[in-house]
Design a binder for these strands. Structure first.
Lengths: 133, 133
DNA sequence: CTTGAGCTTCCAGTGACTGGAAGCCCTATA
DNA sequence: TATAGGGCTTCCAGTCACTGGAAGCTCAAG
């Protein structure tokens, strides 16, 4: 399989696949013409990576997950630990975004958004705390 | 004021303040010895930037917000537009994270996390859909 | 034989910093 | 007066995970 077909079937762009090879996540063989020659297992790995990335796992997490995947003697606890840590990082991010959202939506509601210069959003950003909230 | 004091009072690290000068967000004067000489207005601007960044606005948004802040003839509608767009970007991000969270938490729950290799998380990532949900 | 798509490598840029090195400046103390 | 330290300066490189683009090779179709 050439890179184009693998890209199509895995949903990962060719550029990204080459990048993954660069950093050692996949190691496709080479044909005589210098083209990368992917096997089914490579495709499988790339699809795995695609799904892990879609769940927000970092590349390093993906690397570890892949090696656990290939390790018949793994303990599921190792996988679960990675996933739990990631889950809690996601929770932190959500909480942080929701806090921003909270503040910002109050400010947006308080701003008339007309032709006049008076603006509670700028007032808040400037440190003037005599505001909504 | 030297950079150290401004950093302390604005809560923005010296490195970041220099970076902000690099990209033209602040333009402190210079003393005879080559040190940056910040005025109160610079400090004010930096504090403004700190709050805007804390709300997740991009540097480009911050640049625009700052210039609106300094423009007496602005229309609050311009500010509100920036804020609304950012708010909806935040909402998108939250939604995306919650989707990840959803999937991931199901997988984590389904994984026993013991010494055995059997793992629903890896099964899901590998594309095996005969899973929970 | 040409055309055009697909493949190759390499270099640079993204966003928003952050770390580190080399070296100048200033003040306080021995 | 020498020196030690802390603060300041600039510049370069690294982060994360790609992504774009240029130059050039290969392959299949017409």
């Amino acid at each position: 399989m050439n890179i184009g077909e693998v890209a199509e079937r895995s949903g990962i762009p060719p550029k990204t696949i080459r990048y993954y090879e660069d950093i050692g996540l996949v190691r496709p063989q080479r044909s005589g013409n210098g083209y990368r020659a992917f096997r089914e297992t490579d495709l499988h790995k790339l699809a795995f990576l695609g799904r892990a990335r879609a769940l927000g796992f970092s590349i390093e997490d993906c690397r570890n997950l892949l090696s656990l995947y290939e390790d018949e003697t793994r303990e599921s606890a190792q996988v679960k630990t990675i996933a739990e840590e990631h889950l809690s990082a996601i929770d932190d991010k959500i909480a942080q975004l929701q806090e921003m959202r909270e503040t910002l939506s109050h400010l947006v509601e308080a701003c008339r958004g007309d032709h006049r210069p008076d603006c509670p959003i700028l007032k808040d950003l400037s440190g003037d705390l005599k505001n909504i909230r």
